[in-house]
Amino acid sequence: MTTHQTAWLYEVLGQRGLIVGSSGNVSTRVADGMMITPSGGAPDEAVSLVHAGMDGSVLSGHGTPSSEWALHAAVYGVCPDARYIVHTHADACTALACLGLPLPAFHYMVLQFGGDDVRCAPYVTFGTQALADVAARAIEGRSACLLANHGMIVCAPTAQAALTRTVLLETLCRQYLLARAAGEPRLLTAAEMADARERFKTYGPSGTTPRASVSSLATPNG
């Protein structure tokens, strides 16, 4: 069901306006590499995922993997628990990334990405190993990062979690930009973030990650 879930994730990201046209890509880790959306594909078109190795080679079937296959491979390399990766040019994430700024501790929900901020990797040309390298450094130990003058990337253990994290990151970036437009946001202190981190350990039925709204779109079976 992995391929079905990846196709579902790609479609829903398009429906929510988080991937527009070919400005984004999705993949899932498989035993010998990844299943990744094709180069030039769009979520509102019928696309077939490409079975690619972590070196970008096509392992079976036809098609050309996304030009950002190296970015996905590098993130899988530093995020061993990741099974799904989403890369988008979502509006608020990209706007903040175009300022070359990380998402700071303006809100305790920033903790949901693994640290007190969401790092911003420096700008390098898209579709290159250099981009893959800087993104891997920015996301290591976390589940998301921004890409300067480009967009964002999120990794997760499930398709649902990848969608939830993508929605949450876009929401937080939009809220931070709104706060900056109104004045200088108050950032939480290290002690306040530590207190929130402790509180999250007992949040929900088993300390589960708070979920951003995903509307009424159903999770795929399997």
Results as ranks from 00 to 15, higher is better:
Pro157Met: 11
His62Val: 06
Ala121Arg: 06
Ala73Asp: 02
Leu131Met: 15
Thr94Tyr: 00
Cys98Ala: 15
Ala90Glu: 11
Gly77His: 06
Ala97Phe: 00
Tyr123Pro: 07
His150Cys: 10
Pro102Phe: 03
Tyr123Asp: 11
Val78Leu: 15
Leu103Met: 05
Pro65Val: 02
Ala136Glu: 10
Val118Ala: 08
Trp69Phe: 14
Ile153Pro: 00
Thr88Glu: 10
His107Cys: 08
Arg83Gln: 15
Cys145Val: 04
Tyr123Glu: 05
Ser143Tyr: 13
Val124Asn: 02
Phe106Gln: 12
Phe106Gly: 05
Asp116Ile: 08
Gly141Asp: 02
Asp133Thr: 15
Met109Asn: 15
Cys98Arg: 03
Gln112Leu: 14
Leu146Met: 06
Ser60Gly: 09
Asp133Leu: 14
Phe126Cys: 15
Tyr108Ile: 07
Val75Gly: 05
Met152Asp: 10
Cys120Leu: 11
Gly141Met: 08
Ala73Lys: 10
Met152Cys: 09
Gly127Cys: 04
Asp133Asn: 15
Ser67Trp: 04
Gln112Val: 00
His150Pro: 03
Ala105Val: 07
Gln129Gly: 12
Leu131Ile: 04
Ile85Cys: 06
Leu131Ser: 01
Leu96Ser: 13
Ala156Lys: 14
Pro122Arg: 14
Tyr84Gly: 02
Asp91Ile: 14
Asp117Ile: 03
Glu140Phe: 09
Ala144Val: 09
Ala144Gln: 00
Phe113Gln: 08
Gly127Pro: 12
Ala74Asn: 05
Gln112Tyr: 01
Leu96Ile: 08
Ala95His: 03
Leu147Ser: 07
Arg137Glu: 15
Gln112Phe: 03
Leu131His: 11
Ala132Ile: 07
Ala70Gln: 04
Asp117Leu: 14
Cys79Ile: 00
Gly100Pro: 06
Asp117Phe: 01
Ala90Leu: 14
Ala121Lys: 01
Trp69Cys: 04
Thr128Ile: 08
Cys155Val: 11
